[in-house]
């Protein structure tokens, strides 16, 4: 997979390789993220997402390849590019014996904030993550969702250019999960570049402008959702069922423009079509004109799960 870096890209990852003994955990991964763009790294557990992030964050060295954050080379020895980076690790990387305010203040200081600017920013983030009224409580007393929000708040504290979220919704209840996704959408709308790793297809589809599909350490494909879906052939499925003879209507259905294939018996029919939402009205009209009373119409469009299956031959959650 090739990328064409722009001078303004917040993150440029070029041919990263990292081996642990005989295992190549990351194998030639390249991608870039532009300002305000949310890039999803989608792959199953063990695909190499966290190792890739660890190299981007300068926590471990790459065996080969380079990472540039805001135009500056990132390695474990360089600290300057880290000012532009906010990391929200998969673990709850907070001190349980400290309150939310104390945790935020600590990490704010380490990011170089101080004095009134630090205090003001801490209060701002407490409001943002909805913990202002529990700011003094020890974080070990928080619910799972509150801890997750604090975990994200620490990453946002110094207003980074690039925010890295490593599976931020793992183990979170649906309500908190939705809050987190809304926060990411808001940050992206404010112009922050976001690198979002997940193995949840729905999150990647909802949040990400572009998606990289990673498996066994390799970036298998990259692009917008529609670009990726086109890799599967881009065909939709319409399933019909009803009373009357659907098999008799099959010939008329095959004649419709955009219909590629029809398989039918008396009660059901399955159509392979291009752009089902546009075509469905014509299909329903044709069937009704053939004397069939429809009981059910179901449209299936290819999703990222289909893409992953198509690219790797296995399901995303295998």
């Amino acid at each position: 997979m090739t990328t064409v870096p722009s001078a303004h890209d917040v993150l440029v990852v070029d041919s990263l390789v990292r081996r642990f003994g005989d295992l190549t955990a990351v194998d030639g991964v390249s991608f870039r993220i532009a300002p305000g763009e949310t890039y999803g790294l989608l792959g199953p557990n063990g695909a190499g997402k966290t190792t890739t992030i660890s190299m981007i964050a300068g926590l471990i060295a790459a065996d080969s390849g380079t990472v540039k954050v805001a135009g500056q080379r990132m390695t474990p020895a360089t600290t300057e590019p880290r000012r532009h980076l906010g990391l929200v690790p998969q673990e709850l990387a907070i001190y349980p014996e400290l309150s939310a305010r104390e945790n935020l203040t600590l990490f704010g200081r380490l990011q170089g904030l101080s004095g009134k600017a630090l205090s003001a920013r801490v209060e701002e983030v407490l409001e943002l993550i909805g913990l202002a009224d529990r700011a003094k409580s020890l974080s070990k007393e928080y619910s799972g969702g509150m801890k997750r929000r604090l975990n994200i708040g620490i990453g946002l504290l110094h207003q980074p250019t690039l925010l890295i979220l490593d599976e931020p919704t793992v183990g979170v209840d649906p309500q908190s999960r939705n809050q987190i996704l809304e926060s990411v959408e808001a940050l992206s709308a404010d112009g922050m570049a976001v690198l979002y790793t997940t193995h949840y297809m729905e999150e990647a589809e909802r949040l990400c402008d572009r998606i990289g599909i990673i498996d066994t350490g390799r970036l298998q494909a990259e692009g917008t959702r529609d670009e990726l879906i086109r890799l599967t052939g881009g065909v939709d499925t319409i399933r019909l069922s009803g009373s009357g003879d659907l098999a008799a209507a099959a010939e008329r259905l095959r004649a419709l423009e955009g219909v590629e294939r029809v398989e039918a018996d008396r009660r059901t029919a399955t159509l392979t079509v291009r752009d089902a939402p546009v075509l469905v009205a014509s299909v329903v009209g044709t069937v009704a004109g053939s004397g069939v009373t429809l009981a059910d119409v179901e449209i299936s469009r290819p999703d990222l799960e289909s893409v992953f299956l198509h690219l790797t031959g296995k399901a995303l959650r295998d």
């Binding site: 990391l87 001190y95 990011q111």
Partner: peptide, 17 residues
């Protein structure tokens, strides 16, 4: 505890050597 929770990694991901 700080290592296990990822706090150390988070600190080192910032401008801390």
């Amino acid at each position: 505890q700080a290592r296990r929770l990822g706090v150390v990694a988070r600190m080192l991901a910032g401008p801390v050597s």
